[in-house]
Design a protein around this nucleic acid. Structure first.
Lengths: 145, 145
DNA sequence: TGATTTAGACAGATTATCTGTCTAATCTGA
DNA sequence: TCAGATTAGACAGATAATCTGTCTAAATCA
């Protein structure tokens, strides 16, 4: 019997709070920078688009939504000009979703705010322990995915 | 400049994956146990109800939604019999949301599945490192909340 | 090559979420 | 003490996000 938990707040809540803080702060920063037409759900999908493009079905898996939901969000982002869809040269059925240059500023602002938050977190627990968390979660995610 | 990140997958994504795995596995287990009328959003609120009851506005803050959204989810849970609302003896405006005995089985199943997942995670990274993550997140959440 | 799987599009329904407004109770400060 | 500000929650309405189900075309597999 593993007894890491049982006392509140449990690990699930803690993971949620930390995850949500990072997401909300990044989103708030983007809004503050004048980009007001990207929702959190859209941003969640956007954040999972790889450098060379990602399929909608892969985005769906990574964002933990159905592919229909992911497709809906990608459609909004495309209409707003933040992403484009190009044919996948390796698979005639598929299309790769890619960030457009219009997203560059958004990504930069979001990354800067994430760095800011991580700085605050480092001030609280130290860089070593934050890196331990990162490394451990990395190994856990390998198990999960 | 903090450089814990910059390489994918970043900490935000890792936190999301771990959080979501725990939440989804717990929810799946509850469904598998025959309780099919609790949604993930409802469960998210339910999981934040304290032993002696919690106000809707506090649930809203903890679940990171508006109090209207929290009230809506509590209303569904109340209709389904999983929670009840009682007057708060300390504040005439407020009502405390409490779990009913009908929730006992749900909580037990969810807790058992969480323990199962944590066991799997322990197998992957060891108990010590999992506890480190828990402790560090605890301190980060103090900063955040 | 025929059967199965996969990627995505399309349609429709439901759920979750928000903003805005209102009342009553509590708290605060002069 | 009391008037103003704040807080808890209810009510209404709108929008966003999400799901299930179905379909076609392309790829994979046996």
């Amino acid at each position: 019997m593993v007894t890491i938990d049982r006392q509140e707040p449990n690990l699930g809540v803690l993971l949620f709070v930390a995850y949500r803080e990072l997401e909300q702060r990044a989103h708030d920063a983007v809004i503050a920078a004048g980009v007001t037409d990207i929702t959190m759900a859209q941003a969640r999908v956007m954040a999972r688009i790889g450098a060379h493009g990602t399929r909608v079905s892969d985005l769906a898996v990574q964002a933990r939504v159905t592919k229909q939901s992911a497709a809906f969000l990608v459609e909004q982002l495309e209409k707003a000009g933040y992403v484009e869809r190009v044919p996948d040269p390796l698979d005639g059925r598929a299309r790769l979703v890619r960030l457009t240059s219009q997203s560059d500023e958004v990504v930069a602002v979001a990354n800067a705010e994430v760095a800011q938050v991580l700085g605050e977190w480092t001030g609280q627990v130290g860089l070593g322990r934050l890196r331990q968390v990162h490394q451990t979660l990395l190994e856990l995610c390998e198990l999960i995915d």
